[in-house]
Write a protein that binds this DNA or RNA. Structure first.
Lengths: 345, 345
DNA sequence: TTGTAGGCGTTATCAC
DNA sequence: GTGATAACGCCTACAA
C-alpha cells in the first residue's frame, strides 16, 4: 500500500488535462502553451479549469525536446560568492524572470579548462543562450573554449560575453578603459602623484584595460606609476600583494594603491591596516566596480561606478533580443570619490 | 534542399553516434549514459570514439523526459546579490558540480506569493530537488506554499529547507538560538548591559530565534533588552531603523545594537556613523552570520560564525542522499569578537 | 477552429 | 551482450 487514494498519480500531464476537459491534446496544448491563439472561448475555459483543477504544470523537459530548445539561459561566473558576480547574476535573474526563462548557473573557478567543460555540459540543456561573465582572457588557454562555443552556436544557441568578443558573440561592454582613465586623472587633481597598481595577470582583458586606462589618466595628470603588481582578481590577491609590498619596500605616505576591482581594493585596505598604516590619510586606496560594500566600509572606497545589475540585465536581453546593434556604445561609468582618497594637502 | 553539406546538422544525436559506430541506439545509449554497464569492450570503444568525433552531448531534456526526472536541483533564494545567499549558493553549486547536477536559481524577493509561483514553475523542470533558502516564515502567508511543495513531493521531488521544517521536508538547521544566546551572554561579560535589537518582522523563524536566543543570553548575563525593532533582513532595514532610533531617542554611549544578521548590522554601522556617532567606543554593534565583509570593515564586526558555504553544501547533499538522519544535530556556531564591541571600561 | 498523427532524443523492456 | 521497439510528454504540420 505504498500508494493509496491519491487522485493524481505523479504529475498531471497534458493528456490528463485534455481528457478531463474533453478536448484533444492539440487543443489543450494550444490553450496552455501554444503561441498562436485560436481556440473557442468555451473550450479555452474548460481546458483552463481542468488544468488548474489538476494542478497541471507543463513538463519543461518534454516541451524542450519537442521544441528543440529549452526556456533556459545559462550563466557562467567565476565565483558566485563574489559580490561582483552576485550583483551581475541578480540582473540576469531579473531579466530572465521577466521573460519567463529559468537561469542555470555554473561556476568556472577561473579555470579555462573547467569553463570549457561546463559549456559543453550546459550545451546538453539546449539553453537559449549562454552568458559568459567569468573573466575572459586572451591567451592560448582561452582556446579550449572556442570549439565548445562554436558547437553551441552551431545548434542555435546565442553566446553573450561580458567584455569585447569576436565573431558572432554578442557582448555587453563596459568602458573600463575610459572609466579608469577618468579615475586616474581625477586622482591626480586630488594631489596624488605616485601609484602602485594591483591587477590580475596579463591577458585578462578587464584587468589589462583598467590598468592601461588608469595609467594613461594618471600620467596625463602628472603622476607616475611606480609599479604594476600582477596578483589576481580576489580579495586575497589584493591583500597578499599589498602585505608583501608593504613588507618589502618603504612605501611613503601619500602613495596611492589602485586595486583593479573593489574586491581587490578591499583586500588592499585590510593589508594596509594590518601593517599598521592608515587608509586614506596615509596610504590612499581606490578600486573599481562600486560594489555595495564599498559604501559601507570606512573610509568609503573611491571607485568607478559600474551598474552591475544593469549589465547583467543587458546581457540577458542580448541573449533574447532579435535585433541587436553590435556597435552599441559601451556603458558609461562614473567616478565616485570617497574617503579612501582624501585631498592631499 | 534546406539542408546541404554541413557535416553535423545542429547537434549530434545519439542516433548519429550509433550509426557512426555501427551499433544500435540501445548500445550507444548504454555506453554513453546507461547505468548498468554490460557492453563489449570493442563496442564501447567504437561508440566512445564516434561520440567525441561528433562532439556528442546528451540532450538533457530528452533524457529527462525519458527518465521522468532531470539532473537538476533548484535553489530559491530571497536575493542573490545578498552575500548571505551568495555564499550559500556557492556551497550548493559546489555540491551540485560534484554530483553532476545543474543548479537552477530563482529569486523570491521575499514574497511568499512569488515564491509559490516559482515553486510551481520550477516543478515543470522536474528537478531532483528544491532547496528553500529564502527566509521561511510561519504565518498564514506561508500557506500558499504548502500545496505547491506537496505537489512537488508528490511527483518524487525532494524538498530541503534551511531552518526547521515539518512533514517530509528535510532540513539543514543552524543553531541560531544557541549561537545568539552565546553571543548575548558573551557581550555581557564585555560589560554591555543595554541592547537594542533590530530584527525582521515576527514570524520569520531565523529572526525570531536569534532575537529570543540573544535576549536569553543577554539577560542571563545581567543585561536588559531595551527594545526590539522589527525592520527587516536587509542592509537598508538596519540603516533606517537605526537612523530613526538615533534621531528619536537619546541613545547613551555604551549601548549595544544587535543586528539580526551581518547585512543588517552593516546598515546599522553606517547609520551610526552618519549620525556622527562612533561604532565601537560609542555605540557597539554586533551581527550574525560572519559574512566575508565583516572581516574587512573597520572596526571588524562582532558576530556569530555560520559556515554558510557548508550549509549550502549540506543542503545539496540533503537533496541527494538516500540515507538521511532527520535528527541530525544542528550545526554548531562560534562567537567571533571583533572591534565593533570593545571591552567596556 | 479542432483533431489526427508523426516526431523530438532518450530510456527501458523485451525478445533474440 | 545486443538490438528492435514501445514509451516519455509535448508540439505541430496537415487534414478534416
Amino acid at each position: 500500500m505504498s500508494e493509496s487514494a491519491t487522485p493524481t498519480r505523479g504529475a498531471a500531464t497534458l493528456h490528463d488535462v485534455a481528457r478531463e476537459a474533453g478536448v484533444s491534446l492539440a487543443t489543450a496544448s494550444r490553450v496552455l502553451n501554444g503561441s498562436t491563439r485560436k481556440v473557442a472561448e468555451s473550450y479555452r475555459e474548460r481546458v483552463e479549469a481542468a488544468a488548474d483543477k489538476l494542478g497541471y504544470t507543463a513538463n519543461l523537459s518534454a516541451q524542450a525536446t519537442a521544441r528543440g530548445t529549452a526556456a533556459i539561459v545559462a550563466l557562467l561566473v567565476a565565483d558566485i560568492a563574489d559580490p561582483y558576480f552576485a550583483q551581475l547574476a541578480s540582473g540576469v535573474a531579473r531579466g530572465a524572470d521577466e521573460a519567463g526563462l529559468v537561469v542555470t548557473i555554473a561556476i568556472t573557478e577561473r579555470d579555462p579548462q573547467r569553463e570549457a567543460r561546463l559549456v559543453r555540459a550546459l550545451r546538453g540543456q539546449r539553453p537559449r543562450g549562454l552568458i559568459l561573465a567569468a573573466s575572459r582572457t586572451g591567451g592560448p588557454e582561452a582556446a579550449v573554449l572556442e570549439p565548445e562555443l562554436e558547437a553551441f552556436q552551431g545548434m542555435g544557441g546565442r553566446v553573450v560575453a561580458l567584455g569585447p568578443a569576436e565573431g558572432d558573440i554578442r557582448s555587453v561592454v563596459v568602458d573600463n578603459r575610459t572609466g579608469s582613465r577618468a579615475l586616474g586623472r581625477h586622482l591626480t587633481t586630488l594631489g596624488y602623484r605616485d601609484v602602485v597598481i594591483i591587477g590580475a595577470r596579463e591577458g585578462v582583458h578587464t584587468s589589462d584595460d583598467r590598468i592601461a586606462g588608469f595609467s594613461e589618466g594618471f600620467t596625463a595628470g602628472g603622476g607616475q606609476v611606480r609599479e604594476v603588481i600582477r596578483a589576481g582578481f580576489t580579495r586575497d590577491a589584493g591583500y597578499e600583494a599589498t602585505a608583501r609590498l608593504l613588507a618589502e619596500q618603504s612605501v611613503p605616505a601619500g602613495t596611492l594603491v589602485f586595486g583593479i576591482s573593489d574586491v581587490v581594493a578591499i583586500g588592499v585596505m585590510s593589508a594596509v591596516r594590518e601593517a599598521g598604516r592608515f587608509v586614506g590619510s596615509d596610504i590612499a586606496v581606490a578600486g573599481f566596480d562600486d560594489i555595495a560594500t564599498g559604501r559601507d566600509i570606512r573610509p568609503g572606497l573611491t571607485t568607478v561606478h559600474v551598474p552591475l545589475e544593469e549589465v547583467g540585465y543587458r546581457a540577458l536581453r542580448a541573449v533574447l533580443d532579435e535585433e541587436w546593434d553590435a556597435s552599441q556604445p559601451p556603458l558609461a561609468l562614473d567616478v565616485v570619490v570617497r574617503g579612501s582618497t582624501p585631498v592631499r594637502a
